[in-house]
Design a protein around this nucleic acid. Structure first.
Lengths: 170, 170
DNA sequence: TATTGTTATACTCTATAACTATA
DNA sequence: TATAGTTATAGAGTATAACAATA
């Protein structure tokens, strides 16, 4: 194609270490800025609706969304990894949700350092209510993108996510 | 195709108001979660590097990135709109950058309510130094995605951004 | 009256580091 | 020694509302 005015083979520049040409770096930045812009706008819109509609936050919503898939509960350390957040924050979020009666926290019998957090029936019911609204909000926010494009985006972002998994672990 | 088990024509459900079928809503949520995950991971990686390498934040970096394109400066209100942040925050960010000597702030002669913020030579030099590093970081973080996929992503996200522009203004 | 920006306040999310208790 | 979680602290980002100056 006509794209390749600058396509020295990557293997020449760097076998596998992941350096791009200057041109490609600039293109990568443009992609990143667009990714960031879209995400921030959606995040603000959803965060605002979540706050106004349910008095909650995206972080708490995501927390419950994780927990909801595990009726037997999750260890806080696992949640920390899943939500990509350090341990101290999980303690704080857990305290809030505990106060709301949305989760329980108990010591793991097998490893008494660990605590298991479980979602309560009230938490589950509340989450499901929020999830319905959330689903409709997301649907209406993304309705302007054709179905095929959404599907393609999902696929391509899957590739990005995977390539982020395989990074040299900083 | 096999996708269409649930494809009532959108015009039936809603002519233009943007409601999706339940199936499409769920697919939209999956897309949104993937978008959010990728962005957060990149944002954390870049934010961390920016903090450790330059003692600054993404917000300040973005602020300078905007300003850098306008040697004649920008009004704070304009920055507020561009950075999608409320006015009070712009005041705070401006104060910080002012203290660093990276920007100047003066009253607009034509509208004395307004203030014009300009980037200083020091601010510009500093920004350009950070921008080089930033570009390389982004390049290496996205290097695992094939060039064609990056290009396609950029294109599709442009469509998303545009469709977000055309939303019913919440 | 409406707009620009400032100030003050508060809340959420986050990281870090020191700490306890278990392993 | 290493790990799980807590606590305390700090800082970034944000929203809101009251306010001053100007339009």
């Amino acid at each position: 194609m006509e794209l390749s005015s600058h396509t020295e083979t990557p293997s020449e520049t760097s076998p596998d270490s992941g350096a791009l040409s200057g041109t490609d770096e600039r293109q990568a930045v443009r992609l990143w800025l667009r990714l960031l812009g879209c995400t921030h706008r959606l995040e603000q819109a959803l965060g605002q609706r979540l706050r106004r509609g349910f008095g909650t936050s995206l972080a708490r919503f995501d927390y419950l969304a994780q927990l909801q898939h595990y009726p037997d509960g999750l260890r806080m350390k696992t949640l920390s990894r899943r939500l990509m957040v350090t341990g101290g924050n999980i303690t704080g979020l857990t305290d809030q949700l505990l106060a709301d009666g949305f989760v329980t926290r108990e010591v793991d019998a097998k490893d008494r350092r660990s605590h298991i957090v479980r979602i309560t029936p009230l938490g589950l019911a509340t989450f499901e209510c929020m999830a319905v609204a959330h689903r409709q909000w997301v649907g209406s926010l993304l309705a302007g993108v054709p179905e095929g494009d959404r599907r393609l985006l999902h696929h391509l972002l899957g590739g990005l996510a995977q390539s982020l998994d395989n990074l040299p672990a900083e």
